[in-house]
């Protein structure tokens, strides 16, 4: 197991190098002279020349790439063009909000998804089953930002159950709508996965034996079936945790949530390249790490998987 972890970690290195190269290409090969844009309205030729020099824009491309590479691996991506804030600080100051949102979204997704998945499986072909599976299909197909808007309209404006958007002063109630919106899609996927793997397990012999032994329905479902149905579900949960982190770009915009997603969209609007680069690297890194964790946990949950 230990060797497997090390091997996977080492394997991630070339991928991350590739990510750095792609980020460089994405943010360098764009129309417009960043120095001129940075210099702004008062930019005289001397200022622009100075900025070009400071940013190393006059160096040949491969030198620029190498410099960028060095700054990326040393976590030294400079300061925001827009407000001079250190890139690490800018991202890390927003990350807790995003993490909180993503975590809450995941909790909702697991609770909602597994509950309805189990009920559907146990009461297969019942009204409940059809309803929840239909809802799951809608949850996968409807745009999350649109659902978020409808939620604000219903729960804040019409019903007034939720006091508003943003984070309040960290009160829990502000977390409900954005987390729910974010959680719908993974909840739907988890529900479908739980249902199908539960069905598969329920049909197996030992569960039938359990029924036959006269064990209560609850015990059978929870103790035996669920335990075995968990493996694919766990995988999906892990995988969705990673993709949630990119879903926040939209949800944070809709709910004015002060996280990394909103920072990214703002940086795009103002061409704040240090922030854009930092964010993409940061989120890609997070992505790689969570994929790694998913694989590892998959290995943990399923003893049949070999580590070599």
């Amino acid at each position: 197991m230990g060797r497997y972890v090390v091997r996977r970690l080492v394997g991630a290195i070339p991928v991350f190098i590739g990510v750095i190269v792609v980020v460089f290409i994405l943010t360098t090969m764009v129309p417009g002279d960043p120095a001129r844009i940075m210099a702004g309205q008062a930019g005289n030729p001397e200022t622009i020349a100075r900025i070009r020099k400071e940013m190393g824009l006059d160096d040949p491309l491969h030198i620029q790439m190498w410099n960028f590479f060095k700054s990326a691996v040393t976590f030294n991506l400079g300061r925001s063009y827009r407000n001079n804030m250190d890139v690490n600080e800018a991202i890390l100051s927003r990350f807790p909000a995003t993490f909180k949102l993503a975590l809450a979204g995941m909790v909702i997704a697991i609770v909602l998804g597994m509950t309805s998945g189990i009920i559907s499986a146990v009461k297969q072909y019942s009204v409940l089953d059809y309803t929840s599976m239909l809802l799951a299909l809608v949850g996968i197909s409807a745009p999350s930002f649109w659902i978020g808007l409808l939620f604000i309209y219903f729960f804040c404006v019409i019903l007034r159950w939720i006091p508003g958007t943003g984070t309040g002063n960290g009160e829990f109630v502000y977390l409900i709508l954005p987390a729910l919106t974010l959680g719908i899609r993974p909840a739907a996927l988890i529900a479908r996965m739980t249902r199908s793997s539960m069905l598969e397990v329920i049909r197996q012999d030992y569960i039938r034996t359990a029924w036959a032994k006269g064990l209560g329905a609850k015990t059978v479902v929870l103790k035996h079936a669920l335990k075995n149905a968990m493996i694919p579900v766990v995988t999906i949960v892990g995988v969705q945790m990673a993709s949630l982190l990119s879903g926040v770009v939209l949800i944070e915009q809709v709910f004015q949530w002060p996280g990394v997603g909103r920072l990214f969209v703002e940086a795009l609007t103002y061409r704040d390249f240090p922030i854009i680069r930092g964010e993409v690297l940061f989120l890609a890194g997070l992505f790689i790490i969570s994929n790694l964790l998913v694989d590892l946990s998959y290995a943990l949950f399923d003893p049949r998987i070999r580590y070599d």
Partner: peptide
């Protein structure tokens, strides 16, 4: 395979936004 993994490592929407936003 390496190329595939690199592209996979990007959050999908962020990648597309980075291409589209400046053009």
């Amino acid at each position: 395979s390496w190329l595939t993994n690199v592209i996979y490592a990007f959050p999908f929407l962020l990648f597309v936004l980075s291409i589209v936003a400046f053009r």
